[in-house]
């Protein structure tokens, strides 16, 4: 699984990154979590509100920080 956390450093992107890491660890799945801070790359996803969570190149959440449990549910889908 390929997970990306989009955000330019502010807006609690760090928090989303941590929550995602925790969720992946809890589920014990194989996933590559990447932080994307480059604005051009963020725009390519069409994201206007950071932070955003991208799973397998699809924007799942943007503009808010889902909690660990919510991310777990998303990942299990």
């Amino acid at each position: 699984m390929n997970i990306k956390v989009l955000g330019m450093g502010c807006c609690n992107c760090v928090k989303l990154y941590e929550n995602t890491q925790d969720a992946v660890k809890d589920l014990g799945i194989e996933a590559n979590i990447e932080k994307v801070e480059d604005m051009a790359k963020i725009m390519e996803y069409g994201v206007m509100r950071t932070p955003a969570l991208v799973i397998n190149e699809k924007v799942i959440v943007q503009g808010r920080i889902p909690k660990k449990d919510e991310i777990k549910k998303i990942l299990q889908k």
Partner: peptide, 13 residues
Amino acid sequence: PFCSCSSIPIFIS
């Protein structure tokens, strides 16, 4: 609503 760091992405889009 958006936090100030979103103003640039919104402007671009």
